[in-house]
Design a protein around this nucleic acid. Sequence first.
DNA 1: TTATAATTTTAGGCGAGTCTAAAAAAATTA
DNA 2: TAATTTTTTTAGACTCGCCTAAAATTATAA
Lengths: 216, 216
Amino acid sequence: MNTLAEENYLKAIYKLSLTARNVSTNQIAAELATKASSVTDMVRKLADKALVNYARYQGVSLTKAGEKVALNIVRRHRLWEHFLVEKLHFKWHEVHDMAEEMEHISSTELINRLDAFMGHPTRDPHGDPIPDCDGNIKATALKPISAVKPNTSGVISGVGDHTTPFLQYLEQQKLTIGKRVTIKEIIGYDNTVILEMDNKQLQISRDVANNILIAI
Amino acid sequence: MNTLAEENYLKAIYKLSLTARNVSTNQIAAELATKASSVTDMVRKLADKALVNYARYQGVSLTKAGEKVALNIVRRHRLWEHFLVEKLHFKWHEVHDMAEEMEHISSTELINRLDAFMGHPTRDPHGDPIPDCDGNIKATALKPISAVKPNTSGVISGVGDHTTPFLQYLEQQKLTIGKRVTIKEIIGYDNTVILEMDNKQLQISRDVANNILIAI
DNA sequence: TTATAATTTTAGGCGAGTCTAAAAAAATTA
DNA sequence: TAATTTTTTTAGACTCGCCTAAAATTATAA
Ligand SMILES: [Mn+2]
Ligand SMILES: [Mn+2]
Ligand SMILES: [Mn+2]
Ligand SMILES: [Mn+2]
């Protein structure tokens, strides 16, 4: 149906669309570590297939059909990540690159059986929601720790940075998905955040606080 | 390391090498449903990478390095097939095409963990041996039912034909891996074979008998 | 508003992998 | 052995996805 390259572009456009109405050529190029001219080529191909809306110099957005394809790739990616962590006992920072390949395995039946095998999980190891087979996805309102008022309590439910060093740091600090934390104080000087977790105090930097998302 | 196309060629050459010392261009083309000219191109590329021995018009054989790569792909293919049948409950005739894609997932750590997760299986759902991580493979001397003497008993341990209709037929007749059968008689007229299995008699055609492999 | 900078597109080219058609070599048959 | 058939290779072309360099367009600053 769609090539591997097309799938990667659609997923990138989907991701960027979460924070911008029209996605720019340069944004896509940066996301995929490719060149703007390559993006222009591919975007025209996707427009021909009616998967994106595109007018030159105007940026790009997914059509209904394109969004459906993208959500399916996201579903596959997150289900495989879940499998890798839950069944093969990989750490949460190790699974992304493997899932990046596995998300392109095309069988729908396979992914539905994997979904059932895993017990229809709703979130991947990083807290991101897993779309169902119709592309429905639970949008959850999460807030970065840096954006909540002191004495607020919440459960860590997602991360804003998926890089290995960040995830490893969080794991080392036991700041993992599901943990309840209370924001005690935000230091004015450099926005360091003082947290309470498991009855212990803990300081995290502004950058870290920006990338830990909690449900209140 | 190697492209998807290169991997498919190496696997095809490996398979054909089991029944021929030097594999011909046309054989490879038939196996991969491609054209002889494409095979010549690719074979020269594989020779440049020292994965095959090739002299024009002389056919091709795997080098030690090429065989190692091929065995690794076979390992991945068969482990994924095993997973699909044992964990996701696919039937043995449904798994080949999915495994054909999954075998190209490149992570060695992934496949070793999958191996452990499945309990280090030695055979895939079709009875074919699964190479270990060093490429060691247990060559088992199996005989087609058509080649054994009457009143011989053995255990069905492999198939010589992996096509869906054949596998479905065997399943319907309960002639599956692990079943013990006794060859009672081979009818001279058309080589129909009369079997005993589960204390019942059963007739199979010459073609079917040729493609059921037993360990005696 | 005009000049400058940044973004995006176009033009042209490259490698991978495939194809068809024609030429070369090997195998088979007469 | 000579003619014919089959197999294999070569020649040339195509699509896909990518690149660089240059041109066009849009955004920003003077
Ligand atoms: Mn991908
Ligand atoms: Mn994830
Ligand atoms: Mn394959
Ligand atoms: Mn198999």
